[in-house]
Design a protein around this nucleic acid. Structure first.
Lengths: 224, 224
DNA sequence: ACCTGAACACCGTTCAAGT
DNA sequence: ACCTGAACACCGTTCAAGT
């Protein structure tokens, strides 16, 4: 509520909730969820750990604020599309890439699925489901299935991404994993052995979108 | 490697990896992931915290072992079905209910998606995809989409379940949340407001299965 | 009003010392 | 070989004391 003119000449030294949240996002991106400690954050902001508690109730409050900020910025960047199907794919890719860039979002969205970020994504998907002329009684279910798939699979994907040690390239990892699959017990894992080659060639983002298309096919069939 | 006859007359006092893992599962179920500490586990087993490190490398190792044990027991209980579609629904419900009963599984499966438990579920789904006569080039994608949806949405659902304070009943919670939806800003949340009534009546398990059916429809369409 | 930093009550993990 | 429990290096959070 302070004067608006102050906003543009914000000083490096002044502590504020916004500066704390931005610093927290940087720390989370750089060091992961475990890297965000009140001590590290205080050092980065050249203050004491206790000072942060003047603006932030606790660590959970800080993570909620960081999540809200990142998701609403990301949704602002999703652009309009020609068809509802294309629009849903755009939203899906936007969510996928945002969570991939900020993997700590996963735990947050999982922990607080009724909060603003999830509602915002749900609303965006729902409008397109409506545009697809899905019967009104099926709209909630269609939008829910899409939301669940988009958010949950994006979270899983981002978790996978962190498994790779930076040393090993993705191609090497897939090669090794595919070999492991091919060498599984023939009686216990016939199917997995069978698709080992397809696994080696697969692209996570493409598989993610293929899943969206399977659901969109189902949604279209339910409408007719 | 001790004599087999010892197994049946296992004494309460003897520490073993298996006893530690079983106690860890009980602690996780009762107190959640934060309730599992080496001190609490040691107290429960009437020993010192350090003793556990003779059998368990670290906390992560312990969580992996607990996850393997619970998932393989659960998959053992899924029974045969008349059609591949029914079999996939059975596997889905089995995973859904197991994660619901042991919500700490979520974080574990997310953290280690290439380990045995995920492979076991993938294999079970894949065999049914094969039975559906999906063209071999599309089998990996179909099974992956189903696996992703089943595991990820089950995890999300279990997380939701823990949000409710035991005080509030599910019906009251849905009622309150539905009201909140109906009172959202009309310009920002037109769709969400629209489906507020459907949200109030919805059943998580039914919505989960409806999503499976949408994907199965898509999978069937891809095959023809 | 806002900030400091020591203090408290926890963690996971290690390790010398016991049996 | 197996177990004990004190010790170490961390956490999040509180709070008396400062400005």
């Amino acid at each position: 509520m302070a004067q608006a003119r102050r906003a543009s000449e914000r000083r490096e030294e002044a502590l504020s909730r916004e500066r704390i949240v931005d610093a927290a996002i940087e720390l989370l991106d750089a060091e992961g969820e475990n890297g965000l400690t009140f001590r590290a954050l205080a050092t980065r902001l050249a203050t004491g750990a206790g000072a942060l508690y003047w603006y932030i109730a606790n660590k959970s409050d800080l993570l909620v604020a960081a999540t809200d900020a990142v998701v609403s910025r990301a949704l602002g960047e999703v652009v309009a599309s020609a068809t509802p199907q294309q629009a849903i794919r755009s939203i899906a890719v936007g969510v996928f890439e945002t969570i991939d860039a900020h993997p700590w979002l996963g735990a947050q969205l999982s922990r607080a699925p009724w909060r603003t970020p999830m509602l915002q994504i749900f609303e965006r998907i729902g409008r397109q489901v409506q545009a697809l002329k899905v019967p009104s009684g099926a709209q909630f279910t269609s939008a829910s299935a899409l939301l669940s798939y988009i958010v949950s699979v994006s979270i899983q994907n981002a978790a996978n991404g962190r498994l790779l040690e930076p040393r090993v390239g993705r191609a090497d990892f897939l090669e090794a994993e595919s070999t492991r699959w091919r060498e599984l017990d023939a009686h216990e894992y016939p199917f997995t052995r069978n698709v080992a080659a397809q696994m080696r060639e697969h692209d996570d983002r493409a598989e993610f979108l293929a899943g969206i298309d399977l659901i969109l096919t189902g949604v279209a069939a339910a409408g007719s």
